[in-house]
Design a protein around this nucleic acid. Structure first.
Lengths: 127, 127
DNA sequence: CCTTCTTGACAATGCCATTGTCATGGTTTA
DNA sequence: TAAACCATGACAATGGCATTGTCAAGAAGG
């Protein structure tokens, strides 16, 4: 009998599992958009030996952050790039600080993204 | 005789001195743009008792950061807002980390703004 | 075989940043 | 007092970006 090792590996959030159409559905975005994010260096899904994109849970979370920043906060992709770069360079998830102890201010629409918290710092989070 | 107190106060970077036309000239921007930055909450120059805007050196530096982020890095005002908010909340000048020990990557155009380093965290830097 | 994937190109949409102007009225200063 | 500058608010033109969408030619997979 197989121990729980398989299951644990199966749930590994860094494990590449979703093909682009599925990933696009999960984050409610056009596949075109996901490809653009990749060209812009904001996400970097794994590839099968035959070059097919495979998104991990971490990739999905990362994309959800991008969507949140762009759609809810109005940040453009250049801004997202800087924020991700800062996270990587500072070695901390600075974006979360926007939603931790403080909900003050006016922003009534300010809500952390669905499954908040991007993968690691780098765009290579998926791997 | 006056000690150097006057001089020191005269050079205080938080001292409001530039009227909007002068400030606009200093940062090479239309006065209209400076007013927009203020409405957007990105800068907050002092006012004379008669409501005239007065920009300090810190305000100028802050605007130079905005210009750098928008013109050189392509970040929009929403992104600038987030970055400033993060600086304030983290209590550190995170933007400088982009230019400290590391100049790697490709970005040949990446240069810190003229008089880098914004005032304090808050938009009230000028006061 | 049929569907989905790949890259590259081209386009339409709508929003945003910046500059610019106009009008009306207050402030400063020569 | 008159000229020059400031304030606020409105309206507009410009160019650029984000997103969606499609088309084409070829590879991959069930």
């Amino acid at each position: 009998m197989n121990g729980r090792g398989d299951e644990r590996r199966a749930r590994d959030p860094s494990r590449p599992v979703y093909v682009i159409s599925v990933a696009a559905e999960l984050v409610r975005v056009h596949p075109r958009t996901l490809r653009i994010y990749e060209v812009e260096g904001l996400v970097c899904p794994a590839r099968t030996p035959t070059n097919i994109r495979l998104y991990s849970e971490n990739d999905i979370r990362r994309v959800l952050w991008i969507r949140h920043l762009t759609q809810n906060l109005g940040v453009n992709l250049a801004g997202v790039r800087i924020l991700f770069e800062l996270e990587e360079r500072l070695g901390m998830r600075i974006l979360e600080t926007l939603y931790q102890n403080r909900n003050k201010d006016n922003e009534t629409e300010a809500e952390a993204p669905e499954a908040a918290e991007a993968g690691e710092g780098s765009a290579r989070a998926g791997r």
